[in-house]
Write a protein that binds this DNA or RNA. Structure first.
Lengths: 243, 243
DNA sequence: CAGTGGTCTAGACCACTTT
DNA sequence: AAGTGGTCTAGACCACTGA
């Protein structure tokens, strides 16, 4: 019944997740691991791995000796900060139907912080992309992405920039984005930013400053994103460490 | 050689972490899992679990078919947002030697958002605790904690409030904090906050608004924390989901 | 005391990278 | 082809919860 495609563990995870959102478990109680394993015809280890992911997502809570339970609060989390997403995805998860507008694309010398983040030498340039994500006519997210010009293979046209940045990087540079190191910085919106975000200058906002690396630890992109706090709020689930 | 106390997996994790920070691996290459297992006298599964935790912390990178490697960038992360910590711990990780000052303790009616977050009925009160964390004479963090008064067993004296909030809750209510749901909110500092944080009113700042729950999903505490961005910056590592 | 999740083992096979 | 991490199995025993 459960076989091909993604890993068994992932299939089991999705299967259980499905049942959770459909309210398929009585009183939020998830069956014992041995029972799930027998029902699905997989080993208990596989079930446990799947449950561990769901626990990590905040979808369930496990209590030793007592059982495993649906976590109604965890299901409220829309955006898991510790995961990589495209802003389209993120906005969809919030119930929006987003659109993208590329404000500008340019090859230019990097700002000092960008040069440092990307480990660029004097004289090396970056491809700068400025985008705004909208929900209907409301701007929600403003992003700047800076990619070392050396990495880009061919010519770049504005429509390329509409793709999520990791797709863009894979297509234009052949490198895969493995992780971001991100900082959360409070800022006052400048006039330029405020106008693009359709709000007032001087508004307090979050700036998400991050550098993306490939698996070899090479920096591929430096990015800065600003949000309309009234339309999009960042959330995170915080647990004890070492699970 | 590796035996008692914490779990085997945790001991292996610490052992490898130790070697990483001591630069005990040539060229940042970590030995094959089978070799580690044989050397430490544990199963490969145990080694893999330990490595998974280190990967999750950002300390290492695993590349199928190639090997496991130290991640120098990941080691830079001081504060992992998705983990629960006490602010003392957090500041120590940043190289500070923090101290705490309890500004005030009071039993009072909850603000509307606090009442909602804690699911309180009309008339129920909260224990409010206001604290500032200092590095030397510089205030770095300002926190407000609100605990339902019903949960508190005995009398509370100011020195009790100096303990980390999860210790406080365990001692005063007997309940264990399992996780927080947190939101990151940009704010302009009010005069009161600015004075306590030793900075100017109107400065852009992060407000960390969170509710803490026990394993049964009961809200135990509602909290709000403000930071001196120039002294303490929140960081997070973002990876692909489903690992 | 029965039932649950937590830890650990030993081993098989697969997918991928490197030589 | 050899070596690495990725997935999965079957089973043992422990720690904790709740009736």
């Amino acid at each position: 019944m459960i076989t091909r495609g993604p890993s068994l563990t992932e299939q089991v995870r999705q299967h259980i997740k499905q049942l959770i959102v459909e309210n398929g478990f009585e009183e939020g109680r998830i069956p014992p691991e041995t029972e799930l394993a027998a029902d699905l015809g997989v080993s208990r280890t596989t079930v446990r791995d799947a449950l561990s992911r769901l626990e990590h997502e905040g979808a369930i809570v496990r209590r030793q000796g007592a059982g495993t339970f649906v976590n109604p609060h965890g299901l409220r989390i829309k955006t898991r900060l510790e995961e990589m997403w495209s802003y389209e995805e993120m906005l969809k998860d919030h119930g929006y139907t987003p659109s993208v507008k590329v404000i500008g694309i340019d090859i230019e010398p990097p700002a000092p912080d960008t040069a440092q983040a990307l480990g660029l030498e004097e004289g090396q340039q970056v491809l700068a992309m400025e985008k705004v994500f909208y929900e209907d006519d409301d701007p929600v997210v403003l992003t700047y992405n800076f990619v070392p010009a050396d990495l880009i293979d061919g010519e770049v046209i504005p429509s390329d920039a509409e793709a999520p940045i990791f797709e863009f990087l894979e297509q234009q540079t052949g490198n895969q984005l493995a992780y971001y190191l991100s900082e959360i910085v409070p800022v006052l919106l400048t006039e330029e930013w405020a106008e693009l975000l359709g709000t007032e200058p001087g508004t307090a906002s979050i700036s998400f400053d991050e550098t993306g690396f490939d698996t070899d630890g090479r920096p591929l992109v430096h990015a800065r994103s600003m949000f309309r706090d009234d339309l999009l709020r960042l959330g995170v689930m915080r647990r004890k460490s070492g699970g």
